[in-house]
Design a protein around this nucleic acid. Structure first.
Length: 219
DNA sequence: GCGACAG
DNA sequence: ATCTTGTCGC
């Protein structure tokens, strides 16, 4: 897959904010996709004291969740971890990995937030807009927003609010474990995003897509 | 000014 | 993210 380069990756914090505010206007939070035959999990790890970024993409069949394709890419780390700017650190390597995938996924499950972000442009939005693929933000912890406590039962969820709007959902994918923070990344609604995350999750807290991608990105 | 803060 | 064994709880 060829990916259009919409902007530079070597930037100042001010330039990064400008890019987020520009690209956020392209984010679509309604369902704009057809049949989903393949879902992909995306994850990133680091090597050599963090100087090398390693991205992994795992493509699974849906709804069977069998691993069908995978790709890994390495790239020098050029951006530090700053809350609110995670995509500038991880996306370049992920795009490299996506270009090496043979089976193009119909949906992306990303580690991190979608619109549940200070400027409504988390890593799932950034990846979705640059690839034009439907994307969901699946985070293991909260970046922003408030929510009620989630009942301890698989499948239950509570809305995540910020500044008067619903920006995501706090979803219990498994009893006795911390919930996941789900938010639309691109071309998908919150309700549909929740349904697909549940559809990709079996007996563990994390979706199978994320679990496969994590194995690849870690060793 | 004082905390909070995806991976 | 990463450094890392055993251990607590369903």
């Amino acid at each position: 897959m060829k990916i259009e380069q919409k902007h530079e990756w070597v930037l100042t914090a001010e330039a990064a904010i400008e890019i987020q505010q520009t690209l956020r206007t392209e984010v679509i939070t309604r369902d704009r996709f057809g049949v989903v035959n393949y879902v992909a999990g995306v994850d990133v790890g680091f090597e050599a004291d963090g100087t090398v970024t390693r991205a992994a993409v795992a493509v699974l069949s849906y709804p069977e969740l069998q691993l069908c394709d995978q790709a890994i890419a390495r790239r020098p780390t050029t951006f530090p971890y700053i809350p609110g700017f995670l995509s500038f650190r991880e996306v370049p390597a992920v795009l490299d990995a996506l270009e090496n995938v043979k089976i193009m996924p119909d949906l992306l499950l990303c580690d991190g937030q979608g619109i549940a972000h200070p400027r409504r442009f988390g890593i799932a939005c950034h990846l979705g807009v640059l690839t034009n693929l439907p994307a969901i933000g699946v985070a293991k912890s909260r970046l922003i927003g408030k929510h009620a406590e989630v009942p301890d039962k698989r499948g239950t969820w509570e809305p995540l609010y910020d500044r008067g709007e619903t920006i995501g959902a706090v979803l219990k994918t498994r009893p006795n474990t911390n919930p996941l923070y789900i938010s639309p990344g691109h071309r998908i609604s919150l309700e549909t995003a929740i349904a697909y995350v549940m559809g990709c999750t079996t007996k563990y807290r994390l979706p199978e897509t994320t679990r496969f991608a994590h194995k690849l990105a870690s060793g």
